[in-house]
């Protein structure tokens, strides 16, 4: 799908992380071995955030929405829709959006939808939020929630355990979208290879990708295949977005690219001749692989780097399970309410 959404703007982006940091050096056996030192350097691993064992993804979002309401960033009455993207919901059903309405005593009229788009979730969530905004009242806003917690990994999947224990980082976010003016356009591209899934991950309280229910024929879990797929598609997708939006590469102030490791992101920058500082790749060092929630965290850092209050264009790039990928261009300025909140969850 390729679309320019009109009259849509982002008015706030807040990210949240737990206070607990666990370090690669403390988690791997023999951190000083040549191999582990080289993995750490090449992939950019350092520390990652981890929620308490008793914290669910629902708790994280209840905290986030209470934070926004208590800081007068959003009121209950303004909420017209909630899009939730998570790999680790506490349950299949009831869905997280509905649970949030119950927990926070929100109006029954609020439309909610959960998606499982994983690392592409911020991007697909933006698209769903933009579509929803077209059909709700002018004074209503749509909230896009991302978030995952890997503190309840299932015990029966060694691959998942190894990957997520060492590199998965817990983080969550809320992005507030509302009706804007004629100049507030949001070009977006989302594509999906579709025939194959990429990852098996675990829910915070349930193993919903047990091997008994997954058809191995649809899995692409060979890292080489996955790496090659995205090294081919992501630079091409970024170029396609630049051409489609008619926004010159030099006009893009910064790129927020999903990062399971820094190596892949640096290779995109090199392929596109984009300066490394415009396409940060070192977030994984501080947050681990935070899935879709890394996009808003990077946006926050890019906003902090802006030296003026003018409007700037950021490109968000997401890709992940389902071999879904895409890009969007957002109009951003330093006055957008934003922040990264460290919590005791």
């Amino acid at each position: 799908m390729k679309q320019i959404f009109k009259n849509i703007k982002i008015s706030a982006i807040y990210s949240f992380v737990p206070e607990t940091i666990v370090y690669f050096d403390d988690e791997v056996i023999d951190a000083d071995s040549a191999r582990n030192r080289m993995i750490k350097k090449s992939m950019g691993y350092g520390g990652r955030r981890r929620t308490k064992h008793s914290t669910s993804t629902l708790d994280m979002h209840v905290y986030a929405l209470n934070y926004l309401m208590s800081n007068n960033i959003i009121t209950k009455e303004e909420i017209g829709g909630i899009i939730v993207t998570a790999f680790t919901p506490p349950y299949y059903a009831p869905q997280m959006g509905d649970l949030l309405k119950m927990k926070l005593e929100l109006s029954n009229d609020i439309y909610t939808v959960d998606n499982w788009d994983g690392c592409c979730g911020y991007l697909s969530g933006l698209m769903e939020a933009a579509m929803l905004l077209n059909y709700i009242e002018n004074d209503k806003k749509v909230l896009l929630l991302t978030g995952d917690s890997y503190n309840h990994l299932p015990e029966n999947n060694q691959t998942m355990q190894v990957h997520m224990i060492k590199y998965g980082g817990d983080a969550w976010s809320v992005t507030v979208l509302e009706h804007g003016s004629e100049k507030d356009n949001m070009p977006m591209i989302i594509k999906s290879h579709g025939s194959r899934m990429m990852e098996k991950k675990g829910g915070s309280f349930s193993d919903f990708y047990g091997k008994d229910v997954v058809n191995p024929e649809i899995l692409m879990d060979n890292p080489n295949q996955v790496f090659r797929f995205f090294q081919n598609t992501i630079p091409a997708c970024i170029n396609e977005m630049i051409e489609y939006s008619d926004v010159g590469k030099e006009q893009i102030a910064g790129y927020s690219v999903i990062q399971a490791n820094s190596f892949a992101v640096n290779k995109y920058a090199e392929a596109l001749d984009i300066p490394y500082e415009k396409m940060p790749s070192n977030l994984v060092e501080r947050y681990g692989d935070a899935s879709a929630s890394i996009n808003p965290i990077i946006i926050d850092e890019l906003l902090e780097k802006l030296e003026d209050t003018e409007n700037h264009k950021f490109m968000v790039v997401g890709y992940g399970s389902g071999l879904k990928y895409g890009a969007a261009i957002l109009n951003m300025n330093r006055d957008i309410k934003h922040g990264i909140v460290v919590t005791d969850l």
Partner: peptide, 10 residues
């Protein structure tokens, strides 16, 4: 040297 991502194949 810089090895392009697309060249990083088995």
């Amino acid at each position: 040297i810089k090895i392009p991502g697309m060249d990083i194949v088995p």
